[in-house]
Amino acid sequence: MDDYPLLNLFWTMMWFFLWILWLFLLFRVVADIFRSPDLGGWGKAGWLVLVILLPYLGVLVYLIARGGKMGEHDFASAQKRDQAFKEYVRDAAGTSGPAPAGGGADQLAKLADLKRSGDLSQEEYDRAKARVLG
């Protein structure tokens, strides 16, 4: 341990952290290349060849050229997931069967929470409420 000072240990840890960080960035760029709807097959192949043959330069050029598109793709993907979740909640709340005995108040409370959070519109809330009460 005498031949490896503490400062060298910190230096080694920093380089290891940067290498792992670069690997994550490389995988994120490759994933974005594959899921880009605005790139054709040849465009995806070209970017992939550049990123694989010249990894550091390829990732840097990709981030400069298409970094903004990466954010747009992430945002669009998050919106799709959010919309799918909201549709699932609406379907689950709107298609529930008749309320079990004694469970109507609990279902009404859940519906009120969904309406308050904005996952149900007034019309959907009224329909679901009528199902629970009727």
Rank of each mutant, 00 (worst) to 15 (best):
G41L: 12
V61K: 01
V61Q: 01
L63R: 05
D38G: 06
D38W: 13
F75E: 15
Y88T: 04
L48H: 04
L25A: 08
I52E: 01
R66F: 09
W47Q: 01
E72G: 01
D91M: 09
L114V: 04
T95K: 05
G103S: 15
A76L: 13
I33R: 00
F34N: 06
L114Q: 08
L53D: 03
G97I: 09
L50T: 06
S96A: 14
G104N: 05
F16I: 11
R35Q: 10
L54Y: 13
R81T: 07
V30D: 07
L114I: 11
D32S: 10
K86E: 15
F34A: 04
V51M: 02
V51Q: 01
L108F: 10
A112I: 05
V61A: 02
R81I: 14
L48W: 11
D74L: 15
R81E: 09
E72A: 05
Y56T: 12
F34R: 11
L25R: 09
A45T: 07
R66W: 08
S117R: 15
V61F: 10
G58Y: 13
R35L: 05
L25H: 04
E87V: 01
D82M: 12
W42L: 07
G71K: 14
G68V: 06
V29K: 02
L111N: 03
W22I: 04
G118C: 07
L39P: 00
H73K: 10
